[in-house]
């Protein structure tokens, strides 16, 4: 924790210095951005925008998690299914979502639901790919042990594939949260919207309020970092063996 505080202090100092050199009109310093954040946060529009954004995030991201995890595990556990369908998710992952955003409006309208649908499709491939990878890479030896002890297919799934999958599910959650937040902002910027954090962002950008833009961007990043830390703690509690095992191979990773 000490290292992190020090690291943040150093970065803030560099930022303040850079701001002093190029001038606060082009690059506002940390204090001005903090000030802008307080100004934005005390405004009623911010909390309204936040709740609108979180709706798309929670509904769209939640649906992606609820559907993506079982789908990914199924594709990974059943080799033929995986070979038949895995590449669709690789394709969806690289699809230029910003380019097709207008089509979402055409198909799903412009109410709050469309942004949730956008977040869902934006996040789903990430979750599926990670969970697929986990189930597919269950060590051959552990599967063989289950066979040697005459486990049925269902027992192999429940006692070998699923426990091995747990850390991958948490990785999928962590990457998925980040992806869902990105999807949320893209949806609000590109799908015509008069609400949400993305819309606020667009407003500040149009008014050349650089401190306001940075304040909201940093807020979104902070949101991601916190979500990441929460999921990491959940993972350490749910699969303590995984962290200990990877730590003994030289990776600390305390978050």
């Amino acid at each position: 924790m000490k290292v992190r505080l020090l690291s943040v202090a150093v970065v803030l100092a560099i930022w303040a210095l850079a701001s002093a050199v190029v001038g606060s009109v082009v690059l506002p310093g940390p204090l001005e951005v903090a000030e802008a954040f307080l100004r934005v946060a005390s405004d009623g529009r911010f909390t309204a925008a936040l709740s609108v954004s979180l709706y798309a995030l929670v509904v769209g991201g939640g649906a992606a998690v609820l559907i993506g995890i079982p789908l990914g595990v199924l594709l990974g556990a059943r080799r033929t299914l995986g070979r038949a369908f895995d590449f669709y998710f690789s394709a969806l992952y690289v699809m230029p979502f910003s380019a097709v955003a207008p089509l979402f409006v055409l198909w799903f309208g412009i109410d709050a639901g469309v942004r949730a649908i956008f977040v869902f499709f934006f996040t789903l491939p990430q979750i599926v790919i990670v969970c697929y990878q986990g189930a597919r890479t269950t060590p051959e030896r552990l599967l063989e042990v289950a066979h040697a002890f005459r486990a049925t297919d269902l027992q192999i799934f429940r006692k070998t594939i699923m426990p091995f999958e747990v850390p991958f599910i948490f990785t999928a959650l962590r990457l998925g949260v980040g992806r869902a937040i990105q999807g949320m902002v893209i949806a609000e910027l590109l799908i015509s919207s008069t609400q949400g954090i993305g819309w606020l962002l667009e407003g500040f950008s149009g008014a050349l309020d650089i401190a306001g833009v940075l304040a909201i961007v940093l807020f979104i990043m902070l949101l991601g970092v916190i979500a990441n830390a929460v999921v990491q703690r959940l993972e350490n509690a749910a699969a303590p063996w995984y962290r200990a095992m990877t730590a003994s191979q030289g990776d600390g990773g305390d978050a």
Binding site: R141, V145, A148, F149, R150, A151, K159, W241, M245
Partner: peptide, 30 residues
């Protein structure tokens, strides 16, 4: 795999998420 046989693996093949008790009990559980 015949019920008469029990196999011991060179690289142990233990489940990393199971404690000693749960690893030893794996076959019985199955």
């Amino acid at each position: 795999p015949p019920v008469e046989c029990g196999f011991v693996f060179q690289d142990f093949g233990l489940y990393p998420w199971r404690t000693v008790v749960d690893n030893v009990g794996f076959g019985l559980e199955v």
